[in-house]
Design a protein around this nucleic acid. Structure first.
Lengths: 143, 143
DNA sequence: TAATCAAGTGCAATGGTGTTGCATTTTATC
DNA sequence: GATAAAATGCAACACCATTGCACTTGATTA
C-alpha cells in the first residue's frame, strides 16, 4: 500500500516524505476534490501550511491539479488516468453538487472553447476553468 | 444621464439611492467586470460594506451578475443586452487577461455543456461558470 | 407638520483562506 | 559523523467576504 504511494511520488520526482504520503493517500482515497481545510481536518493535527506547500508541490510536479472557485475555496485532486503522463489536465469541467457538496469531474468540453477562441478571435489561452453547480445524478434520486 | 440611471434602477425595482446610482454608473462605464475593491477605489471614500451590499442587491434584483474566481476575487458586471429581461445571464465564459488583468465576456458555450450533462447524464444544472485565463487579442499585439 | 417606521448607510469587528518569514528538524551527500 | 539542502512547524500577516449594530435618511401615516 505505502510502497505504491512511494512509487507514485517517485515517479513524479517528489521526495516521499511522511506528510506527502499522507496527503497523497487522502487525495487517492477521496472520491472528490478536497480543499486544504478538508485535508487539514482529516490529517489533524498536521500543520496547515505544510499541507498547503505539499499541495503546491503536487501541482507544480503535475501529480495533482487545483480548481479555484471562490465560494468553495480552492480544491485539489489527482490527475485522472486519462491525464497521467506528460499533460497536466485540469480543464475538465468541475461539477459541484449543491446537495452533497461533492466536487466531481465531468466530460471535457474545453477543446470546443479553446478551438473557437483561438482560431476565430485570437485569444491566447493558458487555462480554462469550468465550474458547474447543481444536483448530481446521485442526489437527484435521494431528494 | 442620471435620469437614465434612475430609470434603470426603477425598472429593476431598486430604490435609486445616491450610492446605488454611483455603483451602477461605474458598472456601466467600465468596459470590464469590476471587483468590489476596484469599485471601492473609484468611489473612495465610500464605504466598502455599503458597496458590497449594493452589489448584493444588484445581483438579487438581477441587474448585474457575479463571477467568482479565486485569485482575482469576485467580480461584477451588468447583464448584457442579450440577457436584460427575464433571464439572469451569467453563464458566458469569462476571459481573464493575465497581461492587462481585464475580465471580459466571451461567446457562450454553456448550452453545449448543459445539453450534454442534462440529457446524457442526468445532472441538474443550476449554474455554469467558465473562466478562461490567458492573453486577450488586445495584449497579444502589445507584447 | 410631527411622529413613526422601514430601508439604507457607515463603522467596527470577525472569520476564513491564502501566503510569507524564519527557526527548527529531517534527510541526503560527502 | 559533518555539512548542506530540503522539508516542516509556528507565528504572523494580508485580503476578502460577511455580520452586528448604531445612526441616518426617506417614506408613510396620524
Amino acid at each position: 500500500m505505502n510502497y505504491q504511494i512511494i512509487e507514485i511520488l517517485e515517479k513524479y520526482q517528489i521526495k516521499p516524505t511522511p506528510m506527502r504520503m499522507l496527503v497523497l493517500e487522502q487525495l487517492r482515497i477521496a472520491r472528490k476534490l478536497l480543499s486544504l481545510s478538508e485535508i487539514e481536518a482529516i490529517l489533524y493535527p498536521a500543520d496547515r501550511v505544510t499541507i498547503y506547500r505539499t499541495l503546491q508541490t503536487f501541482v507544480r510536479k503535475r501529480i495533482a491539479h487545483m480548481v479555484d472557485t471562490l465560494h468553495t475555496g480552492a480544491v485539489y485532486g489527482l490527475c485522472t488516468d486519462s491525464c497521467i503522463g506528460a499533460e497536466h489536465c485540469d480543464e475538465h469541467p468541475h461539477f459541484i453538487c449543491e446537495y452533497c457538496k461533492t466536487i466531481t469531474c465531468t466530460n471535457d468540453f474545453s477543446y470546443i472553447i479553446r478551438k473557437n477562441l483561438t482560431t476565430a478571435q485570437n485569444y491566447e489561452i493558458h487555462k480554462i476553468e469550468v465550474t458547474i453547480k447543481g444536483i448530481c445524478p446521485n442526489c437527484t434520486s435521494k431528494r
